[in-house]
């Protein structure tokens, strides 16, 4: 579904702040793969997701989604294929617009926007039903401004919006990192449900090793702009945190993993 071939990205080239964020990353996701991504700060996790989403062009390499080469497409055109949830709960929704208006915008992702009504009555009923799944009481607040919601509610709504039109690829960029543990668990649970229901091909960054092990069918660990570990299948099911740390040390010849990952 996703095919990333040897992409590179260097920020601030030619300056003292030069930073090679992606150093020849290749990654292929099969239809329905749920891949968790871990790694320390500056390992290139978010850069990888942003490269796929098209926030800026990559320096070299190619990216295709569902067989379409999107390497040269701008962000808003790639949105046709991609559903996204960001780390910052403020990023994924329009605060000054109503809950139903936000959902209606998401329902039209990747379609030409015309002079047809921005939202119809049938849609409203449909959205109300969908919001019930979240179990946050949002189904009674369709016309509330999103800015009035809590961070957790906004993340859950963003998640629902990302999956409203079945995306070819779902990108989750540490979407529970800014939430308190209880809320984070709830949003993660909703994530699991939504991904399972539509068999969404998913790439999820997390800072929590346990979450990375529990969720998904495949785990990749990034280090210095490269993929250091790629674990899937039965191997992944039996994985423990200690295993993971040991294998990371072997793969990179570094014991950085302990402090960088456990403390972050």
């Amino acid at each position: 579904m996703l095919d990333v071939q040897n992409i590179r990205k260097t920020f601030n080239p030619g300056t003292v702040n030069e930073k090679t964020a992606l150093d020849g990353v290749s990654l292929t996701l099969n239809d329905g793969d749920f891949v968790t991504v871990i790694g320390g700060n500056g390992a290139g996790k978010s850069t990888l997701l942003n490269a796929v989403a098209g926030v800026w062009p990559v320096d070299s390499g190619s990216i295709s989604i569902g067989g379409t080469n999107v390497t040269k497409l701008p962000e808003h055109k790639r949105a046709k294929f991609i559903g996204r949830v960001f780390q910052d709960p403020m990023m994924g929704t329009a605060a000054t617009m109503q809950i139903e208006e936000n959902m209606a915008l998401a329902a039209r992702r990747g379609r030409a926007r015309t002079l047809r009504p921005g939202i119809t009555r049938d849609e409203r009923d449909h959205y109300r039903e969908m919001l019930k799944i979240l179990d946050l009481g949002l189904e009674d607040r369709l016309t509330s401004k999103v800015g009035l919601l809590s961070g957790g509610q906004r993340q859950a709504l963003t998640l629902l919006m990302a999956a409203l039109r079945k995306p070819d690829l779902l990108l989750l960029d540490e979407h529970t990192a800014a939430l308190d543990p209880k809320t984070a668990a709830k949003v993660l649970e909703a994530t699991e449900r939504i991904v399972q229901k539509d068999h969404l091909t998913t790439l999820m960054i997390t800072h929590n090793m346990r979450d990375a092990i529990v969720h998904g069918n495949r785990l990749i660990m990034m280090y210095e702009g490269k993929i250091a570990l790629d674990i899937s299948g039965e191997d992944k099911k039996r994985l423990t945190v200690e295993d993971l740390l040991a294998r990371f040390g072997q793969a990179t010849g570094s014991d950085e993993a302990d402090d960088k990952l456990l403390l972050s």
């Binding site: 962000e75 949105a79 046709k80 990023m91 929704t93 329009a94 926007r113 002079l115 921005g118």
Partner: peptide, 28 residues
């Protein structure tokens, strides 16, 4: 009427949160 259409809503979204608008496929 105009700001209630799909096109008008995309203008409002652009002003409210351009990141979100682009993620929803709006050419900001």
């Amino acid at each position: 009427w105009y700001f209630g259409t799909e096109l008008g809503a995309s203008l409002r979204a652009t002003g409210s949160n351009p990141n979100m608008a682009r993620a929803q496929g709006i050419d900001t």
